[in-house]
Protein backbone atom coordinates (compact mmCIF):
# COMPACT_ATOMS: atom_id res chain seq x y z
CA UNK A 1 0.00 0.00 0.00
CA UNK A 2 1.82 3.06 -1.16
CA UNK A 3 1.75 6.34 0.63
CA UNK A 4 0.20 8.38 -2.13
CA UNK A 5 -2.70 5.98 -2.39
CA UNK A 6 -3.44 6.41 1.29
CA UNK A 7 -3.54 10.17 1.02
CA UNK A 8 -5.86 9.94 -1.90
CA UNK A 9 -8.26 7.82 0.00
CA UNK A 10 -9.48 10.47 2.37
CA UNK A 11 -10.37 12.63 -0.60
CA UNK A 12 -12.10 9.81 -2.46
CA UNK A 13 -15.73 10.63 -1.59
CA UNK A 14 -15.27 14.30 -2.45
CA UNK A 15 -13.35 13.54 -5.64
CA UNK A 16 -16.06 11.08 -6.64
CA UNK A 17 -18.66 13.82 -6.27
CA UNK A 18 -16.60 16.28 -8.27
CA UNK A 19 -16.13 13.70 -11.04
CA UNK A 20 -19.82 12.87 -10.90
CA UNK A 21 -20.71 16.51 -11.32
CA UNK A 22 -18.26 17.18 -14.12
CA UNK A 23 -19.20 14.02 -15.99
CA UNK A 24 -22.90 14.67 -15.49
CA UNK A 25 -22.56 18.21 -16.73
CA UNK A 26 -20.46 17.28 -19.76
CA UNK A 27 -22.86 14.53 -20.78
CA UNK A 28 -25.76 16.94 -20.27
CA UNK A 29 -24.05 19.60 -22.37
CA UNK A 30 -23.46 17.15 -25.18
CA UNK A 31 -27.05 15.96 -25.08
CA UNK A 32 -28.72 19.33 -24.62
CA UNK A 33 -26.98 22.28 -26.28
CA UNK A 34 -28.78 24.63 -23.89
CA UNK A 35 -26.72 23.29 -21.08
CA UNK A 36 -23.51 24.21 -22.85
CA UNK A 37 -24.35 27.89 -22.53
CA UNK A 38 -22.28 29.49 -19.78
CA UNK A 39 -25.34 31.10 -18.25
CA UNK A 40 -26.93 27.71 -17.60
CA UNK A 41 -23.87 26.86 -15.60
CA UNK A 42 -24.00 30.12 -13.67
CA UNK A 43 -27.69 29.70 -13.06
CA UNK A 44 -26.81 26.55 -11.21
CA UNK A 45 -25.05 28.74 -8.67
CA UNK A 46 -27.69 31.47 -8.70
CA UNK A 47 -30.53 29.05 -8.08
CA UNK A 48 -28.72 27.16 -5.38
CA UNK A 49 -26.92 29.98 -3.57
CA UNK A 50 -29.20 29.76 -0.55
CA UNK A 51 -28.86 25.98 -0.42
CA UNK A 52 -25.09 26.32 -0.58
CA UNK A 53 -25.09 28.76 2.33
CA UNK A 54 -27.36 26.56 4.45
CA UNK A 55 -25.43 23.40 3.57
CA UNK A 56 -22.11 25.02 4.39
CA UNK A 57 -23.30 25.85 7.89
CA UNK A 58 -24.75 22.37 8.21
CA UNK A 59 -21.46 20.79 7.13
CA UNK A 60 -19.76 22.15 10.21
CA UNK A 61 -22.59 20.91 12.42
CA UNK A 62 -22.40 17.44 10.89
CA UNK A 63 -18.59 17.40 11.10
CA UNK A 64 -18.90 18.05 14.82
CA UNK A 65 -20.97 14.89 15.12
CA UNK A 66 -24.30 16.68 15.35
CA UNK A 67 -27.20 17.40 13.05
CA UNK A 68 -29.45 20.39 12.46
CA UNK A 69 -32.95 19.65 11.24
CA UNK A 70 -34.14 23.21 11.70
CA UNK A 71 -32.43 24.55 8.56
CA UNK A 72 -35.51 24.76 6.33
CA UNK A 73 -37.74 26.11 9.08
CA UNK A 74 -35.27 28.84 10.01
CA UNK A 75 -35.10 29.86 6.36
CA UNK A 76 -38.90 30.16 6.31
CA UNK A 77 -38.98 32.04 9.62
CA UNK A 78 -36.31 34.47 8.45
CA UNK A 79 -38.11 35.13 5.20
CA UNK A 80 -41.40 35.88 6.96
CA UNK A 81 -39.87 37.87 9.80
CA UNK A 82 -37.79 39.96 7.41
CA UNK A 83 -40.75 40.58 5.14
CA UNK A 84 -42.98 41.47 8.09
CA UNK A 85 -40.49 43.89 9.60
CA UNK A 86 -39.85 45.61 6.28
CA UNK A 87 -43.45 45.77 5.14
CA UNK A 88 -45.44 46.20 8.32
CA UNK A 89 -43.13 48.12 10.60
CA UNK A 90 -41.36 50.09 7.93
CA UNK A 91 -37.89 49.17 9.15
CA UNK A 92 -35.18 49.56 6.59
CA UNK A 93 -33.65 46.42 5.16
CA UNK A 94 -30.30 47.70 6.38
CA UNK A 95 -31.53 47.20 9.94
CA UNK A 96 -33.59 44.10 9.24
CA UNK A 97 -30.78 42.12 7.64
CA UNK A 98 -28.37 42.25 10.60
CA UNK A 99 -31.32 41.74 12.94
CA UNK A 100 -32.30 38.55 11.13
CA UNK A 101 -28.74 37.25 11.15
CA UNK A 102 -28.60 37.92 14.86
CA UNK A 103 -31.89 36.11 15.37
CA UNK A 104 -30.66 33.07 13.45
CA UNK A 105 -27.42 32.96 15.40
CA UNK A 106 -29.27 33.35 18.70
CA UNK A 107 -31.66 30.56 17.76
CA UNK A 108 -28.75 28.30 16.89
CA UNK A 109 -26.99 29.22 20.11
CA UNK A 110 -30.10 28.34 22.10
CA UNK A 111 -30.34 24.91 20.47
CA UNK A 112 -26.62 24.34 20.91
CA UNK A 113 -26.89 25.39 24.52
CA UNK A 114 -29.70 22.93 25.23
CA UNK A 115 -27.81 20.15 23.45
CA UNK A 116 -24.70 20.88 25.46
CA UNK A 117 -26.16 21.59 28.89
CA UNK A 118 -28.91 18.97 28.98
CA UNK A 119 -27.13 16.37 26.87
CA UNK A 120 -30.24 15.90 24.72
CA UNK A 121 -29.60 14.37 21.31
CA UNK A 122 -29.08 17.12 18.72
CA UNK A 123 -31.52 15.41 16.44
CA UNK A 124 -34.37 15.83 18.98
CA UNK A 125 -33.51 19.39 19.93
CA UNK A 126 -33.25 20.62 16.36
CA UNK A 127 -36.43 18.72 15.52
CA UNK A 128 -38.22 20.75 18.16
CA UNK A 129 -36.39 23.80 16.84
CA UNK A 130 -37.76 23.03 13.39
CA UNK A 131 -41.34 22.84 14.71
CA UNK A 132 -40.83 26.00 16.69
CA UNK A 133 -39.34 28.07 13.88
CA UNK A 134 -41.97 27.06 11.37
CA UNK A 135 -44.74 27.63 13.87
CA UNK A 136 -43.39 31.08 14.69
CA UNK A 137 -43.33 31.89 10.99
CA UNK A 138 -47.07 31.30 10.91
CA UNK A 139 -47.61 33.25 14.09
CA UNK A 140 -46.13 36.22 12.27
CA UNK A 141 -48.18 35.76 9.16
CA UNK A 142 -50.36 33.05 7.70
CA UNK A 143 -50.03 34.43 4.19
CA UNK A 144 -47.10 35.25 2.00
CA UNK A 145 -45.79 38.81 2.35
CA UNK A 146 -44.37 40.58 -0.68
CA UNK A 147 -41.28 42.66 -0.02
CA UNK A 148 -41.10 46.14 -1.55
CA UNK A 149 -38.09 47.56 0.25
CA UNK A 150 -36.07 49.42 -2.41
CA UNK A 151 -32.63 48.29 -1.30
CA UNK A 152 -33.82 44.72 -1.04
CA UNK A 153 -35.20 44.93 -4.58
CA UNK A 154 -31.98 46.44 -5.91
CA UNK A 155 -29.99 43.72 -4.26
CA UNK A 156 -32.25 41.09 -5.72
CA UNK A 157 -31.92 42.34 -9.27
CA UNK A 158 -28.23 43.17 -9.16
CA UNK A 159 -26.22 41.29 -11.71
CA UNK A 160 -22.52 40.80 -11.69
CA UNK A 161 -21.31 40.21 -15.21
CA UNK A 162 -18.67 37.64 -15.84
CA UNK A 163 -17.70 36.27 -19.24
CA UNK A 164 -19.58 37.94 -22.06
CA UNK A 165 -23.24 38.28 -21.31
CA UNK A 166 -23.37 35.75 -18.52
CA UNK A 167 -23.77 36.94 -14.97
CA UNK A 168 -24.26 35.86 -11.41
CA UNK A 169 -26.35 37.39 -8.64
CA UNK A 170 -25.07 38.99 -5.46
CA UNK A 171 -26.28 35.86 -3.70
CA UNK A 172 -23.62 33.79 -5.41
CA UNK A 173 -20.93 36.15 -4.15
CA UNK A 174 -22.34 35.90 -0.63
CA UNK A 175 -22.43 32.13 -0.88
CA UNK A 176 -18.80 31.98 -1.97
CA UNK A 177 -17.72 34.29 0.81
CA UNK A 178 -19.50 32.05 3.32
CA UNK A 179 -17.91 28.98 1.75
CA UNK A 180 -14.44 30.55 1.91
CA UNK A 181 -14.89 31.66 5.52
CA UNK A 182 -16.06 28.22 6.57
CA UNK A 183 -13.22 26.52 4.73
CA UNK A 184 -10.83 28.78 6.59
CA UNK A 185 -12.58 28.08 9.88
CA UNK A 186 -12.63 24.33 9.37
CA UNK A 187 -9.08 23.78 8.24
CA UNK A 188 -6.99 26.63 9.54
CA UNK A 189 -8.31 27.49 12.97
CA UNK A 190 -8.19 25.80 16.33
CA UNK A 191 -11.98 26.02 16.45
CA UNK A 192 -12.28 24.08 13.21
CA UNK A 193 -9.91 21.36 14.30
CA UNK A 194 -11.82 21.06 17.57
CA UNK A 195 -14.95 20.50 15.50
CA UNK A 196 -13.23 17.64 13.68
CA UNK A 197 -11.88 16.25 16.93
CA UNK A 198 -15.36 16.26 18.46
CA UNK A 199 -16.76 14.50 15.45
CA UNK A 200 -14.06 11.85 15.67
CA UNK A 201 -14.48 11.16 19.36
CA UNK A 202 -16.16 13.65 21.63
CA UNK A 203 -15.04 11.95 24.81
CA UNK A 204 -11.41 12.05 23.67
CA UNK A 205 -11.70 15.64 22.58
CA UNK A 206 -12.87 16.53 26.05
CA UNK A 207 -10.05 14.58 27.66
CA UNK A 208 -7.57 16.28 25.36
CA UNK A 209 -8.57 19.50 27.05
CA UNK A 210 -10.48 20.93 24.10
CA UNK A 211 -13.36 23.29 24.79
CA UNK A 212 -16.02 20.89 23.59
CA UNK A 213 -19.02 22.65 25.11
CA UNK A 214 -18.11 26.08 23.81
CA UNK A 215 -17.31 24.71 20.38
CA UNK A 216 -20.60 22.85 20.23
CA UNK A 217 -22.63 25.94 21.04
CA UNK A 218 -20.61 27.93 18.52
CA UNK A 219 -21.14 25.32 15.80
CA UNK A 220 -24.92 25.51 16.18
CA UNK A 221 -24.72 29.29 16.40
CA UNK A 222 -22.90 29.40 13.07
CA UNK A 223 -25.41 26.90 11.69
CA UNK A 224 -28.28 29.14 12.76
CA UNK A 225 -26.50 32.14 11.30
CA UNK A 226 -26.09 30.39 7.95
CA UNK A 227 -29.73 29.30 7.93
CA UNK A 228 -30.82 32.87 8.56
CA UNK A 229 -28.50 34.15 5.85
CA UNK A 230 -29.87 31.49 3.50
CA UNK A 231 -33.36 32.64 4.47
CA UNK A 232 -32.49 36.22 3.55
CA UNK A 233 -31.06 35.13 0.22
CA UNK A 234 -34.11 32.96 -0.38
CA UNK A 235 -36.54 35.79 0.36
CA UNK A 236 -34.40 38.23 -1.58
CA UNK A 237 -34.62 35.92 -4.55
CA UNK A 238 -38.42 35.69 -4.41
CA UNK A 239 -38.92 39.14 -2.85
CA UNK A 240 -41.40 37.66 -0.43
CA UNK A 241 -41.63 35.69 2.77
CA UNK A 242 -43.84 32.75 3.71
CA UNK A 243 -43.90 30.05 6.37
CA UNK A 244 -44.20 27.33 3.77
CA UNK A 245 -40.96 28.22 2.03
CA UNK A 246 -38.08 25.77 2.03
CA UNK A 247 -40.23 22.88 3.15
CA UNK A 248 -38.09 19.80 3.61
CA UNK A 249 -35.00 21.77 2.70
CA UNK A 250 -33.10 20.36 5.69
CA UNK A 251 -33.19 17.01 3.92
CA UNK A 252 -31.80 18.47 0.71
CA UNK A 253 -29.08 20.17 2.71
CA UNK A 254 -28.19 16.98 4.57
CA UNK A 255 -28.12 15.10 1.27
CA UNK A 256 -25.83 17.76 -0.21
CA UNK A 257 -23.45 17.47 2.74
CA UNK A 258 -23.33 13.69 2.51
CA UNK A 259 -22.96 13.66 -1.26
CA UNK A 260 -20.21 16.23 -0.76
CA UNK A 261 -18.25 13.53 1.03
CA UNK A 262 -18.86 14.32 4.68
CA UNK A 263 -19.44 11.39 7.00
CA UNK A 264 -22.87 11.78 8.61
CA UNK A 265 -21.45 10.54 11.89
CA UNK A 266 -18.98 13.39 11.90
CA UNK A 267 -15.25 13.94 11.93
CA UNK A 268 -14.53 13.24 8.28
CA UNK A 269 -15.19 15.44 5.29
CA UNK A 270 -14.51 18.78 3.68
CA UNK A 271 -16.50 21.99 3.54
CA UNK A 272 -15.40 22.39 -0.07
CA UNK A 273 -17.02 19.07 -0.99
CA UNK A 274 -20.40 20.36 0.13
CA UNK A 275 -20.36 22.81 -2.75
CA UNK A 276 -20.27 19.90 -5.15
CA UNK A 277 -22.98 18.15 -3.19
CA UNK A 278 -25.14 21.19 -3.76
CA UNK A 279 -24.12 21.38 -7.43
CA UNK A 280 -24.97 17.71 -8.01
CA UNK A 281 -28.36 18.39 -6.48
CA UNK A 282 -28.82 21.35 -8.83
CA UNK A 283 -27.48 19.44 -11.80
CA UNK A 284 -30.04 16.68 -11.38
CA UNK A 285 -32.80 19.27 -11.44
CA UNK A 286 -31.34 20.92 -14.51
CA UNK A 287 -30.98 17.62 -16.33
CA UNK A 288 -34.57 16.73 -15.54
CA UNK A 289 -35.76 20.10 -16.79
CA UNK A 290 -33.77 19.81 -20.00
CA UNK A 291 -34.93 16.27 -20.51
CA UNK A 292 -38.50 17.50 -20.38
CA UNK A 293 -39.98 14.05 -20.16
CA UNK A 294 -38.99 13.12 -16.65
CA UNK A 295 -41.07 14.63 -13.91
CA UNK A 296 -39.68 16.76 -11.15
CA UNK A 297 -40.13 14.07 -8.49
CA UNK A 298 -37.33 12.12 -10.03
CA UNK A 299 -35.03 14.67 -8.40
CA UNK A 300 -35.97 13.41 -4.97
CA UNK A 301 -35.61 9.78 -5.92
CA UNK A 302 -32.23 10.31 -7.54
CA UNK A 303 -31.00 12.41 -4.62
CA UNK A 304 -32.20 9.74 -2.22
CA UNK A 305 -30.40 7.04 -4.16
CA UNK A 306 -27.21 9.08 -4.45
CA UNK A 307 -27.29 9.73 -0.72
CA UNK A 308 -27.67 6.01 -0.18
CA UNK A 309 -24.74 5.21 -2.44
CA UNK A 310 -22.51 7.64 -0.58
CA UNK A 311 -23.60 6.33 2.78
CA UNK A 312 -22.96 2.76 1.65
CA UNK A 313 -19.54 3.60 0.25
CA UNK A 314 -18.57 5.39 3.44
CA UNK A 315 -19.80 2.63 5.70
CA UNK A 316 -17.85 0.14 3.60
CA UNK A 317 -14.76 2.32 3.95
CA UNK A 318 -15.29 2.56 7.66
CA UNK A 319 -15.65 -1.18 8.10
CA UNK A 320 -12.58 -1.73 5.92
CA UNK A 321 -10.62 0.57 8.17
CA UNK A 322 -11.93 -1.22 11.24
CA UNK A 323 -10.98 -4.59 9.84
CA UNK A 324 -7.51 -3.34 9.00
CA UNK A 325 -7.09 -1.97 12.47
CA UNK A 326 -8.27 -5.17 14.10
CA UNK A 327 -5.82 -7.32 12.22
CA UNK A 328 -2.61 -7.18 14.11
CA UNK A 329 0.00 -6.60 11.45
CA UNK A 330 3.06 -6.66 13.63
CA UNK A 331 3.87 -10.31 13.82
CA UNK A 332 2.92 -10.97 10.25
CA UNK A 333 5.04 -8.22 8.81
CA UNK A 334 7.55 -6.86 11.25
CA UNK A 335 9.70 -5.63 8.41
CA UNK A 336 7.04 -3.28 7.15
CA UNK A 337 6.55 -1.72 10.53
CA UNK A 338 10.19 -1.41 11.36
CA UNK A 339 11.10 0.70 8.40
CA UNK A 340 9.34 3.56 10.09
CA UNK A 341 10.25 2.63 13.60
CA UNK A 342 13.45 2.27 15.43
CA UNK A 343 14.26 -1.35 15.98
CA UNK A 344 13.11 -2.38 19.42
CA UNK A 345 15.69 -3.39 21.95
CA UNK A 346 14.61 -6.98 21.75
CA UNK A 347 13.64 -8.30 18.37
CA UNK A 348 10.28 -10.04 18.14
CA UNK A 349 10.51 -13.71 18.78
Amino acid sequence: MSRSFKIDRKYVPMLATICLFVAGYVIGAIQYPGMARPQTFFNLFIDNAFLLIASTGLTLVILSGGIDLSVGAVIALTSVAAAYLMEHTGLSSLIVIPLMLLMGAAFGALMGGIIHVFKVQPFIVTLAGMFFARGMAFFISLDAITITDPFYRTLSLARIHLIGKSFVSVHVIIAFVVLAVFMYLAHLTHFGRTVYAMGGNEQSARLMGLAVGRTKVLVYTLGGFCSALAGLVFSNNLLSGHGLYANGLEMEAIAAVIIGGTLLTGGVGYVFGTMFGVLVNGLIQVLIIFNGELSSWWTRIVIGLLTLVFILVQSTFASMRRRQASIKPARKRPAAASDGLAAPDTPPS
Binding site: A133, R134, G135, A137, F138
Partner: peptide, 8 residues
Amino acid sequence: MAAQAVKA
Protein backbone atom coordinates in the same frame (compact mmCIF):
# COMPACT_ATOMS: atom_id res chain seq x y z
CA MET B 1 -49.55 25.80 11.39
CA ALA B 2 -48.64 28.15 14.21
CA ALA B 3 -49.67 25.56 16.78
CA GLN B 4 -46.45 23.73 15.93
CA ALA B 5 -44.44 26.36 17.76
CA VAL B 6 -46.33 25.88 21.00
CA LYS B 7 -46.08 22.11 20.59
CA ALA B 8 -42.35 22.42 20.11
